[in-house]
Design a protein around this nucleic acid. Structure first.
Lengths: 244, 244
DNA sequence: TAGTGGTCTAGACCACCTC
DNA sequence: AGGTGGTCTAGACCACTAT
């Protein structure tokens, strides 16, 4: 069976196929963790050659959207960076083992989106948003203070759930309860003197240097889903990057 | 003409071809900025199909080693990240324009490699290394303090050159004077209270929070060429990263 | 054993750049 | 006009996985 691509036919075929495949994921026809059709099936469904299918899939693999396993199939990658702060912060037990932090939502309220949040979420300032205040702890010690904003319309289901049922990982929780899967994120880091509120939550002196991270999380359709700001002691910060 | 690959024949053909091509660059037969042979020439020289050549070149492009230009050819990419601190530090004039820093080498000495330097350079501790002390300035204001270590053997030519001839960019200088081209680097970031020496160079109070970066720079053959540590005021730090 | 992705081939035609 | 990389095809055979 052949298939007519709806996209701009000036684009290369493998690009348009990539967009078609990505749309199947964005619109939840292929779900995170599941296998997509085999290469042979894609060939006959879309009426292109195996090389073109492979190139389109290659792109999505390079983008981190798909994952291939020889002999098993090609799967929609489940983004698992709720623990992404491990990129920046290193928490260790006294014996040196890495530790998984606990997440505790302290407060939930519906507010009008502040300008910066609205810009990050690509909505109009003042739109209703859900604001969560959350701390991440290890051995009961608060190490990160988080402020999270979500568009109210899309996430209103979260308003009916007791705060105690919000687990340690929010992104799988969004997926389960709201059907919004997070595919990627962007983060901006700066070093700031800590503000009064965060200082209290982190039990540190006001004005201590903290790393502040602002994050926008995107769905598979590239639309912003969540905006958050979190901070933690600069002395826990450690980061590694490759340059080319 | 066919060609026998010296590498492990358990590896895929395109992998071995990639290694062959990379070796041509590492051993300076193909120089940064120059075009490599055309795809057709590579096909006949190595006796593989065009698809295999393209896949090998694809890899090196993805690694940032080569750069393709339709209609012109494929070129060895000239790594140009001597200004890599712009990834982490934001320096602006009073009118908000970005500014290019000046580099000034203050001191040069031959010392025995400290343990950490030796480890980074993959040499035995105590081997002779050249140690440079350098500041980066904007409008005569010191903003970054750098300490640079180079293996003495490979870089001994630098010992005969007046410090004033070390330009603002060291990597092109290494390439020109020593024939060592830098291809990639790794950096490790932490936040530290500034030490006495750096505090003096940066004209800030001892103990102020600075971002400290440790960098190993590698040649095209993946061998470490340079180890450096630099630091700058944490308040100038700003970083952006994408997560998938 | 059947099915999956991984590797490799051997072309054809196109778009773009340089001269 | 001639040469470059970019796209696309239509297979073959292999290595690995599940059952």
């Amino acid at each position: 069976m052949t298939f007519t691509f709806s996209n701009d036919d000036r684009l290369p075929l493998y690009q348009r196929l990539r967009d078609e495949l990505a749309a199947n994921i964005a619109e939840n026809r292929w779900r995170p963790g599941e296998a997509i059709p085999t290469e042979a099936e894609l060939v006959s469904h879309y009426g292109v050659s195996i090389g073109t299918v492979r190139k389109a899939v290659d792109k999505l693999v390079a983008e981190g959207v798909l994952e291939r396993f020889q002999g098993r199939g090609t799967f929609v990658r489940r983004a698992s960076f709720d623990n992404a702060m491990f990129r920046f912060f290193r928490f260790q037990s006294e014996t040196g083992e890495p530790l998984a932090p606990e997440g505790r939502v302290l407060n939930r309220e519906v507010v009008e989106a502040p300008a910066q949040v609205a810009q990050g979420l690509n909505i109009t300032a003042g739109s209703p948003v859900i604001h969560l205040t959350r701390v991440r702890l290890i051995n009961q010690r608060p190490l990160l203070s988080e402020s999270i904003w979500l568009p109210k319309e899309k996430f209103s289901a979260l308003l009916d759930i007791p705060l105690s049922e919000f687990g340690n990982l929010l992104y799988p929780f969004y997926e389960e309860r709201v059907g919004c899967a997070v595919a990627s994120a962007q983060e901006y880091l700066t070093v700031e003197p800590v503000g009064a509120k965060d200082a209290e939550l982190l039990q540190i002196a006001e004005g201590t240097a903290v790393i502040t991270v602002e994050r926008v999380a995107f769905g598979y359709d590239q639309q912003p889903l969540e905006w958050r700001r979190y901070c933690g002691l600069a002395s826990h910060f450690r980061y590694h990057v490759e340059i080319r």
